[in-house]
Simulated scan of single mutants.
Amino acid sequence: MRGAWAGTLTAVAALLGAVAAAPPPAPPQWTAQAAAGRPYVYLEGAAGSVLQDTLSVSNPGARPLTVRLGGQGAPLAFAAKTVTVPARTRADVPFAVTVTADTALGDHRGSVTATAGGREVRVPVHLRVSGPSLAALTVEEVRLDGSGTVHYTLVNRGSTVLAPRLSLRADGAFGTVLDRPARPLGLTLRPGERLARTEAWSDPPALDSVTIRVRATAPGAPAAEAGAERVFVSGGALAAGAGVLAAAAVATLAARGRRARAVPERPGLPVEQAQLADVTAGADR
């Protein structure tokens, strides 16, 4: 009987020792979520508006909790960058999302962030920008430099994101010298965005007056076009042209000399009068 009691006492002592050695349960962690327990923030409005919502931060601990607030992927602002939540309390912190006038229509993603004690909680933000859809594209500031490089600027003047295509055409004094068909540029332009670009022209003419036309298109937008002019004159072309002019001048002088030698001289008469006398004598005969 004593052996049974001894075994029971030993088991109880071991159990109490295990309980004493076990670490205390971890205190519940603070939480952050959209107000009313929503899993994410949903906002909808037109470009140029300011939209508001609330972030709820709960502190179940026994001490006050200071939380740093911020946002990512959206123009989001809190009234204060930090908030201190008392123990066993929930704080509802309002914030605002500014939808700028050049924000593209459609869905956008971001997040509200809360950071404290080396831990960060992110609450997703779903933003839908509504309004009339307008696709508008312009080509501006076109110029052609001496190396043949075409400079231009694309501007999205609408309310939708655009994926432009571009074509080039250049006409000289004797016809078309460049005809580059439309091709996608592999980029997108947000509403209000300006993008300066260049197009290389590896073999511009050596001697010509050229008009370059830059044409841009995008789905849903009217075609946009702008141009510029430039005169190309290379050193080699100038030398060749001077040689041609000199040869023409020599040929002209030689021809005049041959005509002068073909008319017989008459004493006392200039060459021009001698030519006229010969013509008159031929008519009399």
Rank of each mutant, 00 (worst) to 15 (best):
S56G: 04
V57A: 00
R88Q: 10
D171M: 11
D203P: 08
V123N: 01
W201S: 02
G110L: 10
G37F: 11
N156C: 05
G220D: 04
R63S: 05
Y40T: 12
W30F: 06
G73C: 08
G118M: 04
L238I: 12
L134F: 11
I212E: 02
T198G: 04
G241Q: 13
V129I: 09
G61Q: 08
R259L: 15
G17H: 11
Q29S: 14
S234A: 13
G3E: 13
L76N: 02
G48M: 11
S58A: 14
A136T: 03
A62S: 11
A36R: 08
R88C: 03
A216I: 03
V150C: 08
V231C: 07
R2G: 03
A34P: 00
M1A: 15
H126E: 11
L166T: 01
A77H: 10
L76R: 12
E44S: 15
G227C: 07
V99N: 03
V121Y: 14
V142Q: 00
S234Q: 14
A136Y: 01
E141M: 06
G131Q: 14
G73W: 04
R128E: 05
V93E: 10
L168A: 04
A80H: 15
P164H: 07
V97D: 00
W5K: 09
A206L: 04
A87T: 14
A246E: 09
A34G: 10
A36P: 02
L276G: 08
V210R: 01
T217A: 08
P219A: 10
D278M: 07
A251V: 14
R88T: 05
G73D: 03
L76P: 02
A4S: 15
M1R: 10
P124C: 05
W5G: 06
S147T: 15
V19S: 14
Y42V: 12
A116K: 00
P64V: 11
S234V: 04
L43I: 05
L137C: 08
R157L: 04
S133Q: 13
P39R: 09
V85S: 07
A91F: 07
V263P: 09
T280W: 14
T149F: 05
P181Q: 08
G71W: 03
T98L: 07
R2H: 06
P94D: 08
R197H: 00
G257M: 01
R119S: 11
L51T: 00
H151T: 12
V214M: 02
V123G: 01
T217D: 07
A248L: 15
G220F: 07
R180V: 05
G146N: 13
S167K: 03
S58D: 12
